[in-house]
Amino acid sequence: MPIIKKKISKTEIRSLVVERLKTLSSGRRISIGADGDFSKEELINHVEKGDKIGDKIIKVQINYLQSLKKGILPND
């Protein structure tokens, strides 16, 4: 059976990241350099708006998901 690759849309990626952020434990803040530090709710808001901070978080999450595929540790 040939593997059919489906291209994921930006909206789908955004929804995926929002769902991942929703599972983040409360009582934590994420420091993103000079942009400041953010609560879970604030980050979700930025991702949904698709602004600069939201895009950074999407990049981080996509980087992680891709690294899971190839192994997150050097000898994986």
Binding site: G27, R28, I30, S31, D35, K56
Partner: peptide, 12 residues
């Protein structure tokens, strides 16, 4: 790239 880290609000 950006250095990102997580902070425990109780220890801020």
């Amino acid at each position: 790239e950006d250095f990102i880290f997580i902070i425990d609000e109780e220890k801020i």
